[in-house]
């Protein structure tokens, strides 16, 4: 179909994700912005929890939204926008971490350890703070998929099937990644005498 760009008018679409997605697909910028405003906090928070770096999280959030808005046509179920967007964030984070790891290995990027106290809220209960400290003390050294899987499991508290869905990996692969990551986590804890 040929479409003419015409003066932007509100289509009267309702507030559901599906309506916003349909309007955004039609080029309505207000609908893109509405979707952004609806999910920006979630996306930024998820990005920051996975990457543990504010600037990187901003870039990841941008990449995820741009990717989503330029590929809305590929979303079969517009009402599933939220889950689709989360999956984009997770997979984009994984790619980004893989690239950073490569650059680090090539000596083109400094590997800056995460300072757990800059990540963990002051009001975290001691057991949760200890868990988060262990996770964030380790993840910078993990391969990207292990890192993402571990954060989704230990920080986001997600089920394995959900993790598999968001990472677009098989359940078996997720189990292997988590098993490897958790093994490293336990060994790190043992070394530090955390138990």
């Amino acid at each position: 179909m040929v479409t003419l760009t015409a003066p932007t008018t509100r289509s009267g679409a309702g507030p559901t994700d599906a309506a916003l997605v349909l309007a955004a697909r039609a080029g309505e910028v207000w609908a893109q912005e509405a979707l952004f405003q609806r999910y920006a906090r979630q996306v930024l928070a998820l990005a920051q929890r996975i990457l543990a770096g504010r600037d990187d999280a901003d870039d990841l959030a941008q990449d995820a939204f741009v990717y989503a808005f330029t590929r809305l046509d590929t979303l079969n179920n517009p009402q599933a926008f939220q889950a689709w967007l989360r999956s984009i964030v997770v997979r984009t984070a994984s790619k980004r971490l893989r690239r950073q790891r490569l650059l680090t290995r090539l000596g083109l990027r400094r590997n800056e350890p995460i300072e757990p106290d800059t990540v963990i809220a002051a009001d975290a209960p001691p057991d949760i703070a200890a868990e988060l400290r262990a996770v964030y003390g380790l993840i910078e050294r993990l391969p990207s998929e292990e890192r993402v899987a571990l954060v989704l499991r230990r920080v986001e508290g997600m089920e394995l099937s959900q993790i598999a869905e968001e990472m677009k990996l098989s359940l078996a692969t997720v189990k292997r990644r988590l098993s490897a990551a958790e093994g490293r986590l336990e060994r790190a804890r043992a070394r530090k005498g955390a138990f």
Binding site: R49, D58, Q62, F65, V66, V119, E131, R154, V155, E156
Partner: peptide, 29 residues
């Protein structure tokens, strides 16, 4: 399940930060 550790990770989702990210997204779009 009621208290996922994610609740205790510091995240800044201030309007200023969101506005800046939107400005970038909008520019790229």
């Amino acid at each position: 399940p009621d208290t996922p550790p994610s609740k205790y990770v510091k995240v800044d989702v201030s309007p200023a930060r969101i506005a800046r990210v939107w400005a970038e997204v909008s520019s790229r779009l």
